[in-house]
Design a protein around this nucleic acid. Sequence first.
DNA 1: CCTCGAATGCGTACGGTGTATCGATCAGGC
DNA 2: GCCTGATCGATACACCGTACGCATTCGAGG
Lengths: 305, 305
Amino acid sequence: MASTGRGARPPYRVIAGEVRARIRSGELRPGDRVPSIRQLAQRWGVAIATATRAAALLREEGLVEPKVGAGTVVSARAVAAPAAPERRAHARRATVLDAAIAIADAEGLDAVSMRRLAAQLGIGPMSLYRVVADKEELVARMADRAFAGCPLPATGPPGWRAKLELAARAEWELCRAHLWLPRAISLTRPSFAPHLMAHTEWILGVLAELGLPPRTRLHEALALHSLVLASASSMAAETDAEQRTGLPLGRWRSAQRSRAGLAVDGTRFPLLAAVPEGAADDLAELFEYGLARHLDGFAALVAGR
Amino acid sequence: MASTGRGARPPYRVIAGEVRARIRSGELRPGDRVPSIRQLAQRWGVAIATATRAAALLREEGLVEPKVGAGTVVSARAVAAPAAPERRAHARRATVLDAAIAIADAEGLDAVSMRRLAAQLGIGPMSLYRVVADKEELVARMADRAFAGCPLPATGPPGWRAKLELAARAEWELCRAHLWLPRAISLTRPSFAPHLMAHTEWILGVLAELGLPPRTRLHEALALHSLVLASASSMAAETDAEQRTGLPLGRWRSAQRSRAGLAVDGTRFPLLAAVPEGAADDLAELFEYGLARHLDGFAALVAGR
DNA sequence: CCTCGAATGCGTACGGTGTATCGATCAGGC
DNA sequence: GCCTGATCGATACACCGTACGCATTCGAGG
C-alpha cells in the first residue's frame, strides 16, 4: 500500500482530473489547446514538475497530444501513432528492464529496489518514474520482457500432447533461469503482458483442433500455466531460503524439528517421517510428475468425447 | 533482506559466538558456570538486554542450562524439557497470531506490519520479538495457525478419490477464507508448520493403501498441495488487484488493452480474443477443472499397476 | 534478606523502502 | 528571444523491520 492512502489523492492527480473533467464536459473540444504546463503550475501553485506529471497522465490516457514547442491540444479521437517521446520512452524502458532483470537474476527480486536500479544505471531514482508509473508496473514489465525469451516454434512437434509438453517445459526452463519470475507473474494480473499472452495464444492454438468448448480450452491453458508456476515458485522459495539460511533442505528440516520441539520422528507423523530422505529435493522431478498426471487426465477428457 | 547484511553480525550474536567457542574449545566444561548476564554486559560494554539475548541464544541451542539463582552452567548433553516460560510464550503467541490473522483477513497480508500489529495489541513493537524471532516466523506461524481451521475427519468418505477431493477442497476453502494464505505458505519452507504437516500426513495416509512407491506418494501429496495453492494464489491476486484498482477483471482488461496500445481484438491474439467474456472469472471452476484432470491422471496411474 | 536469572514493556535509532514534490536545466517550434 | 514540453538531481515524507538501551518486576537459591 502506497503512502498516499485511499482518499487523499496526490495533487498531480487532482490537476489531471480537473482538466479531464473540462474535456469530458465539452468545455475543451478536440483541437483546442489545454493550459500549458507552466500555466497549470502557476494556477495551482505547484512546481513545474508536478504540472508535468499531470500532463503526462493525460497524455498516457490518450486524452491530449503534446506538440513540442506549440502547446498541448485535445486529441481528436483515439490515440494516433505513439508520438516520438513515447518511442523514446519505449527504447529507454528496454535498458531499464534489462538492468532490473540482471539484478533480479543475480540477487533476487527483493534486491530490485528503485534506488538500487537507478544507481546501477547511473541515474537518479526519480528518473525511473518517467519510464514506469509504479514499481508494480516495473515488475510486470520485467516479467513480460523475460517471457520474450521463451519463444515457441511456429510448427511444433506432431501431436497435441508433445506440443503442450513443449510449451510447459519451455515455461519451466524460463522460470528456472529467472527464479523471480513466478513471484513477479503472480503479482501481476493474470495474462497481462503481451509476451505472456502470446504464450497462452500458442497453447490455445494447440487446443483449437481438439473440438473442446472454448471455456474448457481456456481452463486447460490456465491450468497448464498454474502447474508450471506452482512448481517453479516452490523451487524459487527453496533456493531462496537455502541462500538466506545457508542450509540445504535436509539439514534445515532436522534443525527445525528440534527447535520447534516436535517429535516428528514417527510418533506424530509416521508417514511423513517414513518418506525417504531427500525425496522432495528434486523439484524438476516433481514438476514432471504433475505435468504427466495432468496431461493423462486431459487426454482422458479428449478421448472421452 | 534484513538490514544487517551478510557480514555484520549483531553484537548479541558475537557475544554468544564467543561463549560458544569457549565451550566448544573445552575451556568451559559441562557443569561449569558461564559468565553471568551482568558480567557479560559489563565485559562487552553493552546493555543487560543484549547480554540476555546472547544468553537466550545459547539456551535455545541447548549449550547451557540456566539455574535460577545459581548462575548458568554448561549443560551436560542435550536440552531438557521446555521450561515454563516456553509455555507462557506459547500462550501469548496465540493472541498475537489471532490479531495478525484478523488484520490479514481484513486488509491483506501487507497490512500486517510489526508496528501495526503491536498497536492493535496495545503493546510496543519490540514486544512482539519476544514471541516470534522474525517477521518471517510470524507469517509462517500465522499460516500454520490458520491451517488448524482445516480439520480432516479421521475416517473420510469411502474411496481414495473422494478422500483426496475432500482434502483438496478443504484446503481450497481455507484459502478462500484467508486470501493471504497462499502467499504466506509459499514464503515458508515447504511443509514447515505442524498443522500443515498434519494435512500432508492425512493425504499420505490415503495414498498408503494404493501400493505406490513412497517417492510417488510424496509427489502426489505435494502435487495436490501445489494445485490448490496455484489456484488460490490466482484468486488472491485477482481480488487484491480488484480492491486496489477498483476495477473488476473485465473492465481492467479493456483499460489495459487501450493503454498498452495493443491491438488485442483479433489481429494479434485472435484465439485469446475469441474467448468468451468472463470465462476466466470463476476461479473456483478453474480449480475444479484442474483437480478433476489431475485426479483422472492419477487414477490412470493407480489403475496401471 | 539479598542476589541472580528471566521476563516484560517502552523508547530510540538506523538503514532501508516507494514515491511526491521542488527547482533548475535542456531542447525545439513560433 | 520568447514560449513550449522534456529531463534531471536533490530533498522530503511516511513507513518498514529490527537492533539496542534502559527500567522494572518476579521468583527462586545462597
